[in-house]
Simulated assay, not measured.
Amino acid sequence: MNTMAEETWTRTDRAGAAARLMLGWVGLLWAIEAVDLVTGHALDAYGILARDPDGLSGILFAPFLHFGFAHVAANSVPLLVLGFVTALSGIRRFLVVCALIMLADGIGIWLISPPNTITAGASGLVFGLFGYLLVRGFVERRTLGIAVALGVAAVYGSTILTGILPTDATVSWQAHLCGLAAGIATAVYHRRPARTA
């Protein structure tokens, strides 16, 4: 029933819903970081602790946690932009895509990050949404999707490329690489069926 309602929305309805969702999502990240600050950064321990069975629970929490407001700020604009564009296809689909990306990215981080390191932040999701948008139009053979892919590649391509390289010990290239791979895989797996006449 919800899917049917979404299909009858106008473009303005979709854009409004997508904007509200992403503003709320990013606002939540800032609120969580404020709580983290007040608690003396106690929430940081709930990130993904690599290769430790107890660290697997961090897969659920890590995309919402950050190591300071500068970290949140760095992820906020690309998450707003890429999330908004992705959510224009429908809120339900967007949430499924995000869940798949965050799960796959979290498992990848847990497996390949150095032991006893804690990873947190929304950048894995950001890289995942980039990968998803980059590939979706091509696998679905939709002109608008291909145009979106070229647009996000032009805006964020160089940042993504440098972000997956192990050039900064304080940045989890593993989260970026796994997020990108998860987004591409999600676009292939979760593509819309071809329309029939």
Results as ranks from 00 to 15, higher is better:
93 R>H: 14
197 A>I: 07
68 G>K: 14
99 A>N: 09
93 R>A: 12
111 L>H: 04
81 V>P: 01
173 W>G: 08
46 Y>S: 08
45 A>D: 15
67 F>V: 04
145 G>H: 14
159 T>N: 02
181 A>N: 08
62 A>D: 07
110 W>M: 13
112 I>K: 01
88 L>K: 03
168 D>L: 12
159 T>R: 06
172 S>Y: 13
34 A>E: 06
149 A>N: 06
183 G>L: 11
80 L>I: 00
90 G>N: 14
114 P>D: 13
136 R>H: 10
50 A>R: 04
78 P>M: 00
23 L>R: 04
102 M>Q: 08
119 T>E: 11
130 F>S: 00
28 L>W: 04
31 A>E: 02
37 L>Y: 12
163 G>T: 09
116 N>I: 09
113 S>C: 04
86 T>L: 02
188 V>Y: 08
188 V>W: 13
24 G>S: 13
162 T>R: 14
64 F>S: 11
67 F>A: 06
71 H>K: 09
130 F>W: 07
78 P>D: 00
82 L>F: 05
134 L>Q: 09
38 V>S: 10
142 R>Q: 11
132 Y>S: 09
141 R>K: 14
77 V>N: 00
143 T>L: 09
184 I>W: 00
38 V>F: 12
186 T>I: 01
101 I>D: 01
132 Y>N: 09
184 I>L: 00
166 P>V: 04
15 A>W: 07
6 E>C: 14
45 A>F: 10
48 I>A: 05
41 H>C: 08
120 A>Y: 10
27 G>Y: 07
53 P>S: 07
61 F>A: 12
157 G>I: 07
166 P>L: 10
122 A>Q: 03
102 M>T: 15
197 A>G: 09
44 D>E: 10
79 L>M: 05
154 A>P: 01
102 M>A: 14
161 L>A: 15
53 P>G: 11
55 G>W: 13
140 E>A: 12
87 A>E: 14
136 R>P: 03
189 Y>H: 12
178 C>K: 02
82 L>R: 11
12 T>Y: 13
85 V>W: 08
172 S>N: 08
137 G>M: 14
117 T>D: 10
141 R>L: 10
146 I>P: 02
95 L>D: 09
1 M>H: 13
40 G>C: 03
70 A>K: 14
4 M>I: 15
102 M>K: 05
95 L>H: 07
26 V>A: 11
162 T>A: 11
121 G>L: 07
142 R>A: 03
101 I>F: 02
127 F>T: 06
88 L>C: 07
47 G>N: 04
28 L>K: 02
123 S>K: 02
6 E>T: 13
124 G>P: 06
102 M>Y: 09
114 P>S: 13
160 I>M: 10
167 T>L: 15
32 I>A: 08
68 G>P: 10
9 W>F: 14
160 I>G: 01
83 G>L: 06
147 A>K: 13
130 F>L: 04
94 F>H: 02
39 T>W: 05
46 Y>A: 07
177 L>Q: 06
51 R>A: 12
152 V>Q: 00
113 S>T: 05
8 T>K: 15
132 Y>A: 06
76 S>W: 00
141 R>D: 13
